[in-house]
Simulated scan of single mutants.
Amino acid sequence: MDDPSADDGFRVLVDRLWPRGLSKERAALDLWAKDVAPSTELRKAFHHTDLSWPDFEAAYRAELDGPARTAVESLRAELAPHPMVTLLHAVADESHNHALILRDALEA
């Protein structure tokens, strides 16, 4: 996770687990939205088995449209008044991570 920047606006952690070794002070969060993160089962399947990115993406989108729909709608409403929002995550791969999928769902 990158250090806070003045350009971040409203900072939202979108991981289900707190990032290892990160203090709450250093994180400088405005909100921890763990209910919109991939389910524990899906996260483990992606990181510990051979679940492909396209399969993960489809499964996570299904979670966002199903069980996590209320959490997504609540988060969307909470973010609405903020002109700039930064979704924070502890995934090293910047092109294959759940925050990108969540961003699309929030913007839809």
Rank of each mutant, 00 (worst) to 15 (best):
A71Q: 12
H48N: 11
P19R: 03
L22F: 07
L51K: 07
E63G: 08
V36A: 04
I101A: 08
K24L: 05
P67V: 12
L100T: 04
R11L: 06
P54K: 03
W32Y: 07
H47G: 09
F46Y: 15
W18N: 05
M1I: 13
D93W: 13
A80D: 13
V14S: 06
S5L: 08
V12D: 01
A99V: 06
A77K: 12
L22A: 13
T40Y: 08
M1V: 14
V12Y: 06
L22Y: 05
A68M: 14
A62K: 11
K44F: 02
W53R: 04
A28L: 04
L29R: 14
D7Y: 09
D7M: 09
D15E: 06
T49N: 01
L79I: 07
S5A: 11
T70S: 15
E107I: 00
D15S: 09
L31F: 07
E78D: 15
V72H: 05
E94D: 14
A33F: 06
A59H: 09
A80C: 10
R103P: 01
L22R: 15
A80K: 14
A90S: 14
A33H: 06
L100N: 00
D8Y: 01
E107T: 05
L88S: 08
G21E: 02
L87I: 03
D2Q: 15
A33M: 04
K34T: 03
A90E: 02
H96G: 03
A108Y: 05
D3T: 13
W18T: 03
P83V: 09
E63N: 05
S74V: 09
D65W: 02
G9V: 02
P54F: 11
L102V: 03
A77D: 14
R26I: 00
L17D: 06
D50L: 13
E94K: 15
D65G: 13
E57I: 05
P4E: 04
A90L: 08
P54Y: 04
S95C: 08
K44D: 13
T40I: 09
E78R: 15
V12C: 03
W18K: 01
I101L: 11
S52L: 13
E57R: 15
I101D: 07
A27L: 01
D8T: 05
D7P: 00
H98C: 05
P81D: 08
G66D: 08
W53Y: 04
M1Y: 12
S23K: 01
N97T: 02
F46R: 14
A37C: 04
R20P: 01
S39V: 01
E41I: 04
S95G: 11
H89L: 12
E73S: 08
E73R: 10
V14M: 02
L42A: 01
H47S: 12
H96D: 03
V72Q: 06
H89T: 14
D2T: 12
L51P: 00
F46K: 10
P38T: 03
